[in-house]
Design a protein around this nucleic acid. Structure first.
Length: 310
DNA sequence: AATAGCATCAACCGCAGGTCT
DNA sequence: GAGACCTGCGGTTGATGCTAT
């Protein structure tokens, strides 16, 4: 039995709060009301001392969890809609088991709810479709399987092999040179996704790129992501490279993710800001990117996966 | 009607990373 | 710089409800 009170003396695991008298298990409506009223009055935070201040016989962690997953006014309860389910699938493909990040992009849903929904519904659904829920790839891929061949605007995508051969340096790999003296440069492009694209003789209009300066992984250094305008593009900016955005906050990261998932990606550079900014990367979004020892920023497979979802 | 097995989801835990002293 | 403390995350558990036998 799990929801024993700490006074029962039969709990095998050490509870998060070992204090005698701390209540555990399901919350009562009375406790909910006390917690809800207190947080609305005093605000979130200081969870450790909140139970004592609010007069609750609970540990701070339990209070926080109850508020975040159940009592918060913004929490949406009830059935996951088909469009929400679709979004969860796409985000999981892009982000993996980063439930809080996924939840942050689905208004009203909590990480716990999405995690539960994934484990009880979506993972089984994918398995029934012959898809591995861990990596969204076929469970028993046939060697003769044809490319996915998804078509989107100006760019066609083909299936990416599970372990693609190393790519030679791309001739158009550029350094973003437009940054002014007080901005971060040089910013070298560390990876593009050209190998994931195949539109015949016509080069892609633009490439999503992810770059960083050379001093990573110091958390105070910036990380940037953007689009490289291809040198043969018909766009007036052909031959140059532009930073589209610094992901200095959750909004811009969300926009970027949305851009990746929108059907109208990538035309026509709607969010180009004309140059680099010098806003440090917020540490809160660093878990969304992967870094190698050279300071290269992006996991190429992640980007390819994102493109394949288009 | 009783019971076994399964599905769901609220709540717990350990841990990691950030902040404070 | 080190240690204590706090917060948030992802994995897991188990009570409860539902369905099948």
């Amino acid at each position: 039995m799990r929801f024993l009170s700490s006074t029962s003396g039969s709990v095998n695991k050490t509870p998060c709060c070992s204090k005698v008298g701390i209540k555990r298990g399901p919350w009562t409506p009375e406790e909910d009301e006390v917690l809800s009223n207190y947080v609305k009055r005093e605000g979130e935070g200081r969870w450790r001392t909140l139970p004592k201040r609010a007069g609750l016989q609970r540990c701070g962690k339990s209070c926080r969890l109850r508020w975040m997953n159940y009592l918060r006014p913004s929490v949406k309860r009830g059935h996951i809609a088909p469009d929400e389910e679709d979004l969860i699938l796409r985000l999981h493909r892009l982000l993996g088991n980063r439930w809080s990040l996924i939840a942050g992009r689905i208004p009203g849903r909590t990480d716990n709810e999405i995690k539960n929904y994934w484990n009880t519904h979506l993972s089984k659904k994918l398995i029934s479709q012959g898809i591995d829920p861990r990596n969204h790839k076929p469970l028993n891929p046939s060697p003769a399987a044809s490319p996915i061949g998804a078509v989107n605007n100006n760019i066609n995508f083909v299936a990416v092999p599970a372990q693609p051969p190393p790519l030679p340096p791309h001739p158009n790999a550029l350094t973003l040179e437009k940054a002014s003296a007080n901005q971060y440069q040089p910013i070298s492009i560390v990876q593009d996704v050209r190998s994931a694209m195949d539109d015949g003789n016509q080069p892609p209009l633009s490439l999503p790129v992810v770059a960083g300066n050379g001093n990573w992984p110091q958390s105070s250094n910036p990380m940037v992501m953007g689009y490289q305008v291809n040198a043969t593009s018909q766009d007036n900016n052909a031959g140059q490279s532009y930073l589209v955005d610094n992901f200095n906050n959750e909004d811009t990261l969300s926009s970027f993710l949305a851009t990746l998932m929108n059907d109208n990606f990538p035309s026509p550079y709607p969010r180009w800001s004309g140059g680099a900014a010098n806003v440090p990367l917020a540490s809160t979004i660093s878990p969304t990117v992967d870094f190698n020892s050279q300071g290269a920023i992006w996991d190429a497979d992640l980007m390819k996966s994102a493109l394949e979802t288009l």
